[in-house]
Structures are given as structure tokens and as C-alpha cells.
């Protein structure tokens, strides 16, 4: 009986994940058919760059969802960090230096400060959730409203134009023929995969996500891992914010509205379970690629943003239903 059950589960679950690869291939096929230049190296590298921004926050979201949480604040944190990156390079704005750049301190320190602020706000999410015992959903909702409000408040609701060469490099620069962000993203993927799979930290994160009480009784403090997951999510949101600022050459409080949903969609389409404890960063990358390609194809079809939104809603819905059916069969 045991053997039958697991046998079934193996077949079904592999069929579901195969389905994802198939979907990806299908999308690539459609795109290649519609746009002849699609499969050129140049275009693929460009696509990789366009995936990276959502890709960063999706990595952070994977950690959070693995810890059985949900981070709605990532897009707002991204916007806040974008505004901060630009503001730190226009520190003289208060002294009337509006046209020239005026760094508050050298760029590496700006980068570190912004990353620290992002991580700290993520850490704060974790603290509120674990210590004040408020649901993930509501706490990060509060942070989402708060961080976006802060981004608007410190920029006065205006875009801060022009950033320094270093920031531009982070968003637009090339390493040989490969976009710098894409390099950074791929490095982040590899690093996080190794952390999750081959370190005690990763193992404990999985375990405390799936069953916090059992983890606690085994001497693993699930709160620490939840806080860490949110901190990591905040860190990646900040990193995406810096890169985004460079890409757009503007510090923009309105940037990335609704991206938290895309990130959640990417994680779920990739096959990471909402219940926590099951999934991986590599799966998420699959989800990011699927979402990115769908958007790409819809744009190629000349579909406007709002009908695109409609279609994305349906795609996410079907992905979730399919995942659920897969899980159900394997249980």
C-alpha cells in the first residue's frame, strides 16, 4: 500500500513539473514563431536582463514562501529603495543643487546603506510577524502601505531624475556581451540554491516552514528562520530597487506597482507550495521565465497593458488550479 501511494505520487508530481517545462518550451516556440529574431543570442540576453528585476524579488519571495510566509511589501520596498538610491546621489537637493549630482557619501556606501535599509525593513516584517504575532499577510500589507507612503513622502511624490554612472552600470552595464544585472541575478540564483540545499541554514528553513512546532521541539527556532527569510526578501527588494533605478535612470516612487503579485505568481507557477517547506529557487526561475515570456508574447501581439493584466490574472488562476490538482493527486 505504501509503495503504491508513493509510486503514484512520483509519477504525478513529475508529470506536473514536466508540464511546466513543456509550457516554457511551448512559450519559447510561440515567441520564436512570432518574432524571427527571438532566438538570437542578443535577444535572449536582453530577455534575461528584463527577467532579472522581477527575478530578484522572486528569489526573496521564495525564501519567504518556503518559511510558510508571504511578503506583500517587496514592490513597495523596491520603490522606496529606488527613491533612496537616487536621493542619496542628489543629497544637495536641499541646498539647491538640483541639476548636478551630489553624493551623500561614495557609491559603495550608498549601495550598502540602501541594501541595509531594505534588509532592515524586511527584518522588521519578520519581527512584527514572529514577536507581535500578527499574520504574515497583514503585517506585510501594513509594510507595503507604509513603505510606499514613505517613498512618496520623501520624494514629495516626484521622480528624482538622473543617477550616477555606478548606478547606471548596475542597471544597464554589460560584462562582455552579458548584461551586468543578468550576471548578478544568475550569481544570486546559484548562491541561494547552494545555501538552501547544502547548508544547515537551508535545511532548517525548509523544516521550520513545513512544521514550525515540530522544528521548535527539535531545537530549531522557527522564528529565527522566518525573520531571516523576510530579511533576505528585503535585501533582494533593495537590490532590485538599486538596479531598477540604474535601468530607468530615475528614482521613482511609482515603480513596480503590483510586482508583489507577479513575484508570488512566479513562485507559485514554479511550483513552490504555499504551505511552506516544499520548493526551490530553481523552480521559481522557471516561474519567472514563464511569466516573463507570456508578457513578452502579449507585447509582441500588440496587446495593451490592461488586457495583459486580465490575461495574467487568468494565467495565475489556472497555474494555481493545476498545481492544486497535482498536489491533490500526489497526496
Amino acid at each position: 500500500m505504501i509503495k503504491t501511494f508513493t509510486g503514484v505520487s512520483l509519477v504525478k508530481s513529475s508529470r506536473v513539473s514536466l508540464g511546466r517545462y513543456f509550457a516554457l518550451l511551448l512559450l519559447i516556440g510561440i515567441a520564436a514563431f512570432m518574432a524571427p529574431g527571438f532566438l538570437t543570442l542578443q535577444n535572449i540576453l536582453n530577455l534575461l536582463r528584463s527577467f532579472s528585476f522581477l527575478g530578484f524579488i522572486s528569489i526573496g519571495m521564495t525564501f519567504v514562501i518556503l518559511s510558510a510566509g508571504l511578503d506583500l511589501s517587496v514592490a513597495s520596498l523596491l520603490a522606496l529603495c529606488s527613491v533612496l538610491t537616487a536621493l542619496f546621489q542628489h543629497w544637495g537637493i536641499y541646498l539647491g543643487h538640483t541639476t548636478t549630482l551630489s553624493y551623500i557619501f561614495p557609491f559603495p556606501f550608498i549601495l550598502i546603506t540602501v541594501l541595509l535599509i531594505g534588509s532592515f525593513l524586511g527584518f522588521l516584517n519578520g519581527i512584527v510577524i514572529t514577536k507581535l504575532k500578527i499574520t504574515d499577510f497583514v503585517s506585510t500589507l501594513g509594510m507595503m502601505v507604509f513603505a510606499r507612503g514613505l517613498a512618496f513622502a520623501i520624494s514629495g511624490g516626484r521622480s528624482i531624475f538622473e543617477v550616477g554612472a555606478e548606478t547606471l552600470f548596475m542597471g544597464r552595464g554589460m560584462v562582455g556581451i552579458i548584461p551586468f544585472v543578468a550576471c548578478l541575478w544568475v550569481f544570486a540564483i546559484m548562491f541561494c540554491t547552494i545555501v538552501l540545499k547544502y547548508t544547515a541554514f537551508g535545511q532548517r528553513l525548509y523544516v521550520s516552514g513545513e512544521n514550525p512546532e515540530a522544528a521548535r521541539l527539535s531545537g530549531v527556532d522557527p522564528h529565527i528562520y522566518k525573520i531571516a527569510a523576510y530579511t533576505i526578501s528585503g535585501f533582494f527588494a533593495a537590490l532590485a530597487g538599486v538596479c531598477m533605478t540604474g535601468r530607468l535612470n530615475v528614482g521613482e516612487p511609482r515603480v513596480a506597482q503590483g510586482w508583489e503579485l507577479d513575484a508570488i505568481a512566479a513562485v507559485v507557477i514554479g511550483g513552490t507550495s504555499f504551505a511552506g517547506g516544499q520548493g526551490s529557487v530553481v523552480k521559481t526561475i522557471l516561474g519567472v521565465a514563464i511569466i516573463g515570456l507570456i508578457r513578452n508574447i502579449l507585447s509582441l501581439l500588440g496587446i495593451l497593458p490592461s488586457p495583459q493584466q486580465m490575461i495574467m490574472g487568468l494565467v495565475l488562476l489556472f497555474a494555481v488550479i493545476l498545481q492544486r490538482l497535482g498536489e491533490r493527486n500526489s497526496d
Binding site: 544547515a200 535545511q203 532548517r204 525548509y206 523544516v207 513545513e210 512544521n211 512546532e213 515540530a214 522544528a215 521541539l217 527539535s218 531545537g219 530549531v220 517547506g277 516544499q278
Partner: peptide, 19 residues
């Protein structure tokens, strides 16, 4: 609920406290 992580393997459960 409290003793085991049901969705994890025998090995992952056994090494958990001594990781």
C-alpha cells in the same frame, strides 16, 4: 504534528536535531 516533519524524508527527520 509535533514529533515529525511529515513531508520530509526519514533522513531529514533523523538528522534534524543534530544537523
Amino acid at each position: 504534528q509535533h514529533g515529525l516533519i511529515l513531508g520530509k524524508s526519514v533522513q531529514e527527520n533523523i538528522v534534524l536535531p543534530s544537523l
